[in-house]
Amino acid sequence: MTRTAESTFIASIDNIPQMVAFVSDAATAAGVHPRRVMHLELATEEAVTNICSYAYEVPPGRLSIRVSRSADTLRVEFIDNGVPFDPLAADAPDLQADLENREVGGLGIFLIRRLLDEVHYHRRDDQNILSLVIKHDPA
């Protein structure tokens, strides 16, 4: 894995477009196909929305985003010092629900799981580390 980009943001909802743009630019620079860049943008928005909303008991803290690549994968890691928070533990949404009963909770993580190739969560050294991985399309 070669690190290609890293940046730290204030974990506030207002900064989310900046974080999405950071990942998008890094993925584009790494030669990721535009369709997969869109998947990463969506996954980033969903991941950082969770972190900015829940990870800090007294918001806002800091959120680091680290992008690295290997020959055939691109990995994006989101690292925060907030309370332990595993977004992957959320219940899957009920996709069959009708309009009255439909809720959107859990849909963000569901979309991440479906659009990306791998998602991992680790708690290490008082940090939450969420990793998103896509297989790099051959150019």
Binding site: L42, L95, Q96, A97, D98, R102, L107, L111, R114
Partner: peptide
């Protein structure tokens, strides 16, 4: 289109 296909919103829309 991908997001709508995945999210099942066509059940009620």
């Amino acid at each position: 289109k991908e997001v709508f296909d995945l999210s099942g919103f066509d059940n009620f829309l």
